[in-house]
């Protein structure tokens, strides 16, 4: 019962026309085998804001993101992007996958990876020209990786690889950016660079959704949170939805009470 209560408190005023949200999910259930990874989730992402998807390991954070992108097929549910079906809005979405899913020995250079972001402009046969290369270099510049353009991707550190993948997403010039654990296992310089880019995207009016694992930085980085543990626990602005109660409800016994209290304390500060 208490969970439902918190959820309703945590819900902010949904936009007047919720279907125009950059990402609106209704009744989404995804299952690998018999056990749902994500169960009956509703989500309404606020435009022009940065939202963190938060939850314990195996809570379905990445699955939610992948289902929203059509990478995994949901058992049920609807996904609307900017008020239209996903298939018609592909060009407006940029996705940064988890680093672990990539073969880093693949024969490709940093600039080639970023040029993959221009796939739509290039089509099947158009030649890669100076303008495309310039655009890719500009995107690399934004994440501080311009000097690495000609390196093979395996020669980069984990954080640098992550920044290259962000640059590829930037090259798409999308309106909605979905990132899967971009801060996992990266160095401090990379974290700073990535959050700087994400904030500048928000300043341009873009919408950013991040699967995030570090509870300590939620308050500094994000406007909204979406707490999930298979089903939704809470959704809304950090100030109302990111509380010790919602965290306890999301993480249960997995989060020591001390940690919860500390986070709640920073919440009040």
């Amino acid at each position: 019962m208490s969970i439902e209560l918190i959820a309703s408190q945590g819900t902010v005023a949904t936009p007047d026309r919720p279907t125009d949200s950059p990402l609106a999910i209704r009744g989404l259930t995804v299952s690998y085998g018999q056990k749902p990874a994500v169960f009956s989730v509703d989500m309404t992402v606020q435009p022009g804001a940065m939202t963190a998807i938060i939850g314990p390991n195996g809570a379905g954070k990445s699955t939610l993101l992948k289902a929203a992108l059509g990478i995994v097929r949901p058992l049920s549910g609807q996904v609307q992007v900017f008020g239209a079906p996903l298939a018609r809005q592909r060009a407006r979405i940029a996705y940064v996958p988890q680093r672990a899913s990539i073969d880093w020995d693949f024969p490709t250079r940093v600039i080639d990876v970023v040029l993959m972001g221009l796939y739509r402009q290039l089509g099947l046969l158009r030649r890669i020209r100076g303008v495309h290369r310039d655009r890719a270099l500009t995107c690399l510049d934004r994440v501080g990786m311009r000097d690495f353009a000609d390196r093979q991707i395996g020669q980069l550190s984990g954080g640098q690889q992550q920044r290259v993948f962000l640059a590829r997403a930037l090259a798409q010039d999308a309106d909605l950016y979905l990132l899967d654990e971009p801060f996992a296992g990266v160095d401090a310089a990379t974290e700073k660079a990535i959050i700087g880019v994400l904030k500048s995207l928000r300043a341009e009016g873009k919408t950013v959704v991040v699967v995030h694992h570090d509870l300590a930085t939620v308050r500094d980085y994000f406007d909204n949170v979406f707490l999930i543990n298979t089903s939704k626990v809470a959704e809304g602005p950090v100030s109302t939805a990111f509380t010790s109660e919602t965290l306890q409800a999301t993480y249960g016994g997995r989060l020591a009470t001390v940690q919860v209290d500390q986070l709640a304390a920073t919440a009040l500060a």
């Binding site: 592909r90 996958p97 490709t108 990876v113 993959m116 796939y119």
Partner: peptide, 22 residues
């Protein structure tokens, strides 16, 4: 191969990203 080289490379390198791009 000339016709399909870009999609085939993208799918080989990062199939999830390729799916996300439709």
């Amino acid at each position: 191969i000339v016709l399909l080289r870009r999609p085939m490379t993208l799918v080989a390198f990062d199939p999830d990203y390729a799916l996300a791009r439709g």
